[in-house]
Design a binder for these strands. Structure first.
Length: 526
RNA sequence: GGCGACGUAGCCAAGUGGCAAGGCAGGGGUCUGCAAAACCCCGAUUCCCCGGUUCGAAUCCGGGCGUCGCCUCCA
């Protein structure tokens, strides 16, 4: 890996060359969710962004260790539990499970660990105790506060001065802080709230300490990247730095701070409190996962992203375009097409196009994970592939030459592989010979699938009722329609196409046969 | 009020000193029984406005206008 990846680091406010703590290995901690309600697209953005960063690093040969926490005990969870008359931990367990399901449906590869606050109380207590011993924290009537004045570098991440903060800080009634800017590391238990024993009496962790404790526990001091939304820069991440560096006595706690922009709705931040959120489930109901991902990746991760169903619709069309291109390449590769010289030349040239796309993709991703540019490289490759395919299907005296086959294969592999890094292109020929592939090939042909490395991402959307029987029945209808077309019974052929269309199944007649496609992207040709 | 980000074609969005990527939408053409998909052609003499630096700026500097985020729980 001669070429270095560069990453924008919030702390230094510059884009820096990425050098991991340990060569070849990347450690990442991403602030996860507080599971007290359904996940919305505001949660989906960082999940997908980090999934892509992780996949890209893996694609580049790094071994990645990704940790994402669940803040399973805090004010919001407790409030929700009280509202519903249920155990807060039960609430958070439920919603964290839903979150994991939603993210899996979006094609997000699971993190290596999902630590929960409630399962790391001893680490947190130990850390707080040490901070008290070192004079960085103090106890006040069962609460423990971080003494901001003891950490001169406080404010370095968010660019604030303690004086500034003091002006705006609020002091809750009943708090016994030395200084308004001090923040809670440990909160004394209040009646009816979950609590754990500690040297300061029963209580629970403050909001910021858990991430420090768990990140240090799983990744060690000075790990590589810490992620989260920009709204966490202050106070959450600022406080994390203070606690962690005061605790270890060493800087930096984190090598690169990476923050994603927020999803806005009608120019307003989407959030639970504003009640203007759209859940991931609602979205997955209407759009294929790949389309949602493409939408989320259509803007650079640091800029605000406006939620808009029109843009989701656009993303779906764009996503279909990539899938169609891959499918077309596979279709001509799977058959001996007759082709003329011009077409063969175009196909052979695809080898270079694929190489160019790989290079552009790489340069884009190296430049602070510039996914819009990476996508542009994919679209250009798709166009080149489509051009070659359309020329090939025009027919001619020759069959596919070796060069042409090679070019097609390279293009198809690059498209699947790079699209796989972003999770926006699925390979219809899965290595295991998925249902779609089996249907395409029938029982008498071998699987294609040269490029077995690409994982299947997402899918399944809108295909809930799609089973073996459905597939067989579709086959029957397609055969019937083919016969009708052979007899020039256009009325019947169009009826079948129309009715299937109402079910979301698209039919397209091509020189190679009738191509069918489900809303979720699965498809084939018969 | 303080801190920060942004303002590029109808819409979305890259591009941070040298002739403005890509997607969607739209128009014309090819292919098709029709359709769809796909391909080919067409779109910003110009990048919010005004100054300045430079041989040269969307890109740098200054000012203005506008939008958003953080400063309080929030992905």
């Amino acid at each position: 890996m001669e070429d270095l990846i560069s990453v924008y680091d919030t702390l230094t406010r510059t884009q820096r060359e990425f050098q991991p703590r340990d060569p070849g290995r990347v450690t990442i901690y991403v602030c996860g969710v507080t599971p007290y309600d359904e996940a919305h697209i505001g949660h989906a953005r960082p999940a997908v962004v980090w999934d892509v960063i992780r996949r890209y690093l893996e694609y580049r040969g790094y071994s990645v260790h990704l940790v994402q926490n669940f803040t399973d005990i805090d004010d919001k969870v407790i409030a929700r539990g009280r509202e519903l008359g249920r155990d807060p931990l039960e609430i958070s367990r439920h919603y964290s499970q839903r979150y994991l399901e939603d993210m899996a449906a979006l094609g997000v590869k699971p993190a290596h660990q999902y630590p929960r606050v409630s399962e790391h109380i001893p680490e947190i207590v130990e850390m707080v105790r040490t901070l008290v011993e070192k004079g960085h924290a103090y106890e006040a009537s069962g609460d423990v506060y971080f003494r901001v004045a003891s950490f001169p570098e406080y404010g370095k991440l968010s660019g604030r001065s303690v004086d500034e903060l003091r002006a705006g800080a609020r002091v809750e009634p009943g708090e016994a802080k030395e200084s308004p800017e001090d923040f809670a590391l440990w909160k004394a238990a209040r009646p009816g709230e979950p609590s754990w024993p500690s040297p300061w009496g029963p209580g629970r962790p403050g909001w910021h300490i858990e991430c420090s404790a768990m990140a240090l526990r799983y990744l060690g001091n000075g790990f590589d990247m810490h992620g989260g939304g920009v709204e966490l820069i202050f106070p959450h991440h600022e406080n994390e730095i203070a606690q962690s560096e005061a605790y270890t006595g060493e800087a930096p706690f984190v090598r690169y701070w990476v923050h994603n922009g927020l999803v806005t709705l009608r120019e307003e931040k989407m959030s639970k409190s504003l009640k203007n959120f759209v859940t991931v489930r609602e979205l997955l109901d209407r759009y294929p996962a790949g389309a949602i991902r493409l939408y989320l990746l259509s803007a650079h991760y640091r800029v605000p992203l406006e939620f808009d169903t029109e843009r989701l619709d656009e993303a779906r069309r764009a996503w279909e375009r990539l899938g169609n291109a891959l499918r077309s390449l596979d279709e001509v590769l799977e058959r001996e097409v007759a082709a003329g010289d011009e077409a063969l030349a175009a196909a052979a040239r695809l080898g270079e196009e694929a190489g160019r796309a790989r290079e552009r993709f790489r340069m884009a991703m190296e430049d602070d994970f510039n996914t819009p540019q990476a996508l542009a490289a994919l679209f250009d490759l798709a166009r080149a592939g489509n051009t070659a395919v359309s020329l090939l299907l025009r027919g001619g005296p020759l069959s596919l030459s070796g060069d042409a086959r090679d070019g097609l294969l390279r293009a198809r592999t690059a498209l699947a592989e790079l699209g796989g890094v972003l999770g926006v292109v699925e390979s219809p020929c899965t290595p295991s010979g998925g249902a779609a592939a089996r249907f395409v090939h029938g029982s008498d042909q071998a699987q294609g699938g040269e490029d077995a490395a690409v994982e299947r991402v997402g899918g399944g959307v809108g295909t809930g009722g799609w089973d073996a029987l459905g597939r067989e029945l579709l086959g029957v209808l397609l055969d019937l329609r083919a016969r009708a077309r052979g007899e020039k019974n256009w009325a019947l052929a169009d009826l079948i196409r129309g009715r299937l269309g109402e079910l979301g199944i698209t039919l397209e007649d091509t020189p190679l046969g009738t191509r069918w496609r489900l809303p979720g992207g699965e498809g084939g040709i018969r």
